[in-house]
Structure formats: C-alpha cells, structure tokens
C-alpha cells in the first residue's frame, strides 16, 4: 500500500462542493453567532434581570455540553418538538447557537472591560444612554474583543467537521466518504487536515492584519 493522491484529485469537483458547504456554513454560523451573541450580551448587560438570568442559563447549557451531543439532539430530537430540519439548516442552526453562546460571553466581558471613566466622560458631555452604547461602548468593545473573536472563528471552522455525522455534505463528510470508497483513508484524512489548517491559518492572518490596522485605536 502506498500514499497515492491521484484518487483524491480525480474527485476534485466533489471535494470543491464539500469545501463550499464548509465555507458557507462556517461564514454564516460565525456571522449569525456574532449577531445573536451580541444581542444576548446586550440584554444581559443592559436588560432586565430575569431575562439576563434566563439567557445566562441558556449560555451555560450551550457551553457546558459537547457540540456533538447538541447537534445530535437538534437533528434527531428536534422532530419530537415539531422541528424537523434538513441536515444543512439543522447544522447551520446548531453551529450558530453554539457560536452565539461563546460570542455572547466574549462580548459580555468586552462590555465590562470598557473603562468606567470613558462612560462617565460621555455622560458629562451629555450623551444619552443609547448614544453612549452606540458611540462609545460598541466601538471600544469591538477593539477589545477582536482577538477572542478571531480565536472563536478558528474554533468554529473546525467544529463544522462535526456536522458530517448528521450527513451535512461538507468537506469532512465528502472527503472521508471518498476515502472509504477508494480505500484511500490516509490520503483523505491528510487532505482534510491540510484544508482545515489552511482555513485556520488564513483566518488567523486576516485577524492579525485587521488588528494591526486598528492598532492606532488601542487604549492609550
């Protein structure tokens, strides 16, 4: 038995379609996770206490259970509560919720990290509470949380592989199936490792570039 990449390359169109699904779900889940996570963090920071406690419980559950179990429960348990989703929507929803839980914690810490004095300075020049959130808190928090957000995006790209177990036709599902058919297990796994690592590396580089560009806004 020898390491032979040609069988993999022969199936390039299938691989590319898997890659497209991986990328699509990753980008969409990251965007939805950031949006939902921000709303959750804002409600926990500014909203009424009972709502904050309820959201906290939801976040704790999502952070305290394996993503594998969550996605199984959503896909196979969903129909019991009338939520029958196809693999791709189920995967996207599951990953987005999982991401939102983590992003909300990042944003919550970000809100707390904005110096109290920056808010007081805004109060002193007459900005309203809503203007302070929009003009001061959100921009300053964004600066503070950028590195953790990039880190979370990196984790999420790898978590998309979990979606293969509910038959989402993403890269891991497509390429490992190919490996089984062609008896090219090592080659397919190797290719997958390279693909994920490449995505993670690209994401990290983009994040660092963004940080550098924004570095002059850093806290004095």
């Amino acid at each position: 038995m020898s390491f032979d990449g040609s069988v993999i390359l022969a199936a390039l169109p299938a691989i590319l379609s898997g890659l497209k699904v991986t990328l699509g779900i990753w980008v969409a889940a990251t965007a939805l996770g950031i949006a939902l996570g921000f709303v959750v963090a804002a409600f926990r920071h500014f909203g009424p206490r009972p709502l904050g406690l309820a959201l906290r419980l939801a976040v704790e559950v999502l952070r305290g259970t394996p993503f594998l179990i969550q996605i199984f429960l959503l896909y196979f348990g969903g129909p019991f509560i009338g939520l029958s989703l196809d693999p791709v929507p189920a995967g996207l929803l599951g990953l987005s919720l999982y991401a939102a839980a983590y992003f909300s914690e990042i944003f919550r810490a970000g809100f707390l990290a904005v110096p109290r004095g920056h808010v007081e300075a805004a109060q002193c020049v007459g900005l309203s509470q809503a203007q302070i959130v929009r003009r001061i808190l959100i921009p300053e928090m964004t600066m503070l949380v950028l590195p953790q957000c990039v880190n979370m995006a990196v984790i999420l790209v790898k978590e998309t592989a979990v979606l293969s177990i509910i038959a989402v036709p993403e890269a891991t599902a497509v390429i490992s199936a190919l490996g089984s058919q062609q008896y090219a297990f090592v080659e397919s796994l190797f290719l997958l490792a390279v693909i994920y690592w490449g995505l993670v590396e690209a994401c990290g580089r983009a994040g660092r570039a963004l940080e550098t560009r924004l570095s002059k806004f850093r806290f004095a």
Partner: peptide, 20 residues
C-alpha cells in the same frame, strides 16, 4: 438634570479620552 449638567465640564485624572 441634563440641562443643568450641560453647564458643567469635567476633566478626569485618567483623561478618559475615547481611544477610537
């Protein structure tokens, strides 16, 4: 409250400029 406060300016020990 805002009206009366608008006649007062405040300078802090930590400057508290908005970094962005």
């Amino acid at each position: 409250i805002r009206k009366v406060r608008s006649g007062i300016g405040m300078v802090f020990q930590q400057f508290n400029l908005w970094p962005h």
